[in-house]
C-alpha cells in the first residue's frame, strides 16, 4: 500500500531533513521510500515542501498525488496545500488559523510552541513535527525513528532531538 506525506512550511524550518529521516526510517523497516522536494530560489524563507512516499511495493511515481497526510507549519503552506487535500489528514501548527473552506480532517497541534517552550530550542520543531506525523500516521515505530534521527542530526544534538521526537509522539497521542 502506498502512503503519501507532504511536509510544508517555510524554507529553513528543516522539513526536508524531517522528510529524509522519515524515508530512512521506512527503509530501516524494509519498506520502499522515495523523498522529493520543491523549493524556491531563497536559502531561507519562501515556501518549502518535501514529500515522502512509502510503500511495501515498487514506487514508480515519486511525488505525492493525493497525500494521506499533510503537515503545514505556516499559514501560507496551510492555505496553499490544504485545499488540495482529499482523503487525507491535515496536521497544522496551532499558530495557524483554520479555514472553513478547507474540508479535510484537520488536527491542530502546538508543534512550534512545544519546540520553543518544552524543549527550549525552536530549531527542533522539525523533529517534533516528525514525531507528530509518525504518531498520527503510525507509519513507522518510535524506536526506528529514533535510530534514523540519530543518524542524521548533528553530533552532540542527539539527546535534544530524541527529546523533541518523544515530545512529538506525546502531542500526537494527545491530539488523536
Amino acid at each position: 500500500m502506498r502512503t503519501e506525506f507532504r511536509l510544508s512550511g517555510s524554507g529553513g524550518q528543516g522539513l526536508l531533513l524531517a522528510g529524509i529521516v522519515l524515508a530512512e526510517a521506512a527503509i530501516l523497516e524494509d519498506k520502499n521510500a522515495v523523498q522529493t522536494q520543491s523549493y524556491g530560489p531563497e536559502a531561507r524563507g519562501g515556501a518549502s515542501k518535501a514529500e515522502v512516499v512509502i510503500s511495501g511495493e515498487d514506487i514508480d511515481y515519486p511525488k505525492a498525488t493525493d497525500p494521506d497526510y499533510l503537515l503545514a507549519l505556516t499559514q501560507e503552506s496551510y492555505r496553499s496545500f490544504g485545499p488540495l487535500m482529499g482523503k487525507g489528514t491535515i496536521i497544522v501548527d496551532s499558530s495557524v488559523a483554520l479555514s472553513d473552506d478547507i474540508k479535510a480532517r484537520t488536527v491542530s497541534v502546538p508543534i512550534l510552541q512545544a519546540a520553543a517552550d518544552d524543549i527550549g530550542k525552536k530549531v527542533v520543531a522539525n523533529i517534533v513535527a516528525l514525531g507528530v506525523l509518525a504518531g498520527v500516521s503510525g507509519i513507522v515505530g518510535h524506536k526506528t525513528l529514533e535510530e534514523a534521527v540519530k543518524k542524521r542530526v548533528p553530533k552532540g544534538t542527539e539527546d535534544l532531538n530524541l527529546k523533541a521526537l518523544a515530545k512529538g509522539f506525546e502531542l500526537a497521542s494527545a491530539a488523536t
Partner: peptide, 9 residues
C-alpha cells in the same frame, strides 16, 4: 532536477 534531487532506496 527531479532525478538529481530525489532520494530513493
Amino acid at each position: 532536477e527531479v532525478i538529481g534531487h530525489m532520494r530513493e532506496k
